[in-house]
Design a binder for these strands. Structure first.
Lengths: 349, 349
DNA sequence: CAGCTCATTTATAACGTTACAACAAAAATT
DNA sequence: AATTTTTGTTGTAACGTTATAAATGAGCTG
């Protein structure tokens, strides 16, 4: 039980100095605390010479404003809450997305706070608490629905947010979205070009706006390409992989089986590949498959598949930028970002 | 430019009431602010009747302590920083782990803060800042190395942390780890049981402590099973998938190719599967493969593989518990958790 | 009943910051 | 030269909490 080992050892000189505050800076610069505060905030009332001296002293002392004090005084938190989807997410979405957001917020002083969606309970509760108790300056979330209750609530209360995905509300709001319409069109065109006639889209429920966009894009593309289209029910973001596999199996057992598959995401692709394999079908031979790709691991699916790329890190970065724009009150045009699929096609493997 | 739509509409009654504070509660209860503060903190100096009345009034008013004020006053942040590895992480690690930590911290008032590791720069910088400026009460990180500089720094300064993985330092410290030794032993035993004689472990670099454990366990198991063992160099957590594939190919081109593979993680498994496939080898026929599994997606690898499970959500929960134990100053035994592989074997698919 | 202890409660100050009103001195106006 | 204006700076208060010291009053002791 050598607990003593955990006790901090002799602090070195730099550590033992009192943490610099506005007071210590003001004292050294021979100014009032208020003046220092203003100088560091680039307040126009401060003379240039004073500002310069203050920043110099502040830097020398290694002054960093105390977040808690700022927060208490101003009510602003310098925190951005990311609503984490705590259902199983099997691929890299969260990780890459977070990394992108971190990059985008670098140097702004904003911290990212993970808030788990309340499992079971009303998912608005979490958001209400954030707003009521000023736990964050803005909120970010994913899996946006056509008439998303979170968007509605946040718009109604004028609370800053950025959604990953659009809504069907008439009131415009900040978002970052991937052009799923373009993706699915490209995917279908490619499959038709390879001679496929009956396309199946393995994609999540229509509850999500991006599901609608996919449907719309798919229908358009199917018509213009003269292809048949099947969009099976019972495939959703939170479906058990086995359910999805069963759905595909049932589809194939029917009279009129698809010969081309578009998979929205790598998990869907993996499940589809397994399903096809189990039915004795090989992509590249009897059928073809195009998937949305967000990581290099799909390069290692066998048989190889074709992909269209979505850059999740760039998505995270864009979210951060839009968030800052929203907080700064910049115009709506700068806060609605539609990211294009990366390159028309990249053959994996 | 319909910005007006974003402006908050008429606040409803509940919103317009002043945010309850200790003062409002004290006023209504006819007590001093200090008394209320103590009552809510379960201070033994407060009479039972008073405490009861206070909690009642506080609940009715919907009082929630102001974090910023508490933080300013006490210096404690009620924040836990998770150091996010911003290199590419292609599978569900971050997401599941975070979900588990959230669960474990539910109701404790602790928030999880994501701090990206400083790309390029000294990775200790981030940690130093957290400590210097009291940005968090504790730190969590993964990919722990045998003589991890982060662990050393944090131990030296007595700053609370929990590492995912152990170190080789003599000073004990809080950690949560997976029993990789048991995992690799089980995996090898299974492969030998299937008649395999030459086992290849596809695993990350020995820099990481868990890499060492894997090596150790593998050697022991190989000896006791009488199997040959190969651990290729050049496979690491941050290796490009293509590099790993090339390594395996080279290995197989050699005079004495392995016939059994242990893959530490699903990405490794996928890459290995692809490599074997490309070389015309089929698991279950010429070779066999056992992988560590942390998500159900490996059920959909084809050909099917056998797996040993690691529960990342449970890992996150354990991290949270250990963290709280550390902050509470509980004894070291409660803060060193070794999670066992889940069940001896589960045949996927 | 004075003196003392103990159990509660209270007043005050402080954490570090920023908003606000006030101020002094220099510059511009009359 | 007296005034207003401008420029730059300062002092005070407050955000909501907790630590510390002080105060109150009841109960007990001698």
């Amino acid at each position: 039980m050598p607990r003593k080992n955990l006790v901090s050892k002799e602090e070195n000189a730099a550590d033992v100095l009192p943490r610099p505050t506005l007071r210590t800076v003001a004292a050294e610069a021979g100014l009032a605390v208020t003046t220092v505060s203003r100088a560091l905030a680039d307040d126009p009332r401060i003379a240039e010479a004073t500002r310069k001296r203050v920043t110099e002293v502040a830097n020398r002392q290694g002054y960093v404003p105390n977040r808690a004090a700022q927060r208490l005084r101003t009510g602003r938190t310098k925190v951005i809450s990311l609503l984490l989807n705590t259902r199983h997410e099997y691929l890299s979405f969260t990780s890459e997305f977070l990394a992108g957001m971190s990059e985008g917020l670098q140097g702004t002083g904003y911290a990212i706070n993970i808030t788990a969606d309340s499992l079971g309970g009303d998912r608005l509760d979490v958001i209400r608490q954030i707003r009521r108790h000023s736990l964050a300056d803005a909120i970010v979330f994913t899996r946006t629905e056509c008439f998303d209750d979170r968007v509605r609530y946040l718009l109604e209360h004028g609370f800053p947010f950025v959604s990953h995905g659009r809504t069907d509300f008439t009131t415009p709001h900040p978002f970052v979205d991937f052009d799923n319409e373009a993706f699915v069109r490209q995917a279908i065109e490619r499959l038709v070009q390879k001679g496929r006639q009956h396309i199946c889209i393995v994609m999540p429920n229509e509850r999500y706006t991006f599901g609608q966009h996919l449907r719309f894009g798919a229908r358009q593309a199917a018509i213009s390409c003269g292809a048949q289209l099947t969009i099976p029910e019972g495939v959703d973001l939170d479906s058990e992989p086995d359910e999805i596999a069963a759905t595909l199996r049932a589809l194939h057992a029917g009279p009129d089986a698809p010969d081309g598959y578009v998979c929205v995401g790598e998990v869907m692709a993996l499940i589809t590949l397994a399903g096809l394999n189990d039915m004795g079908l090989t992509p590249g031979k009897e059928v073809d498959l195009v998937a949305k790709r967000a990581s290099p691991i799909s390069n290692h699916f066998r048989p190889r598949i074709e992909t269209v790329d979505e850059d999740l890190r760039a998505t995270g970065r864009a979210m951060a930028e839009v968030l800052l724009a929203r907080i700064d009150g910049r115009p709506m045009e700068e806060m609605q970002v539609l990211l294009k699929p990366n390159g028309p096609f990249s053959i994996s493997g």
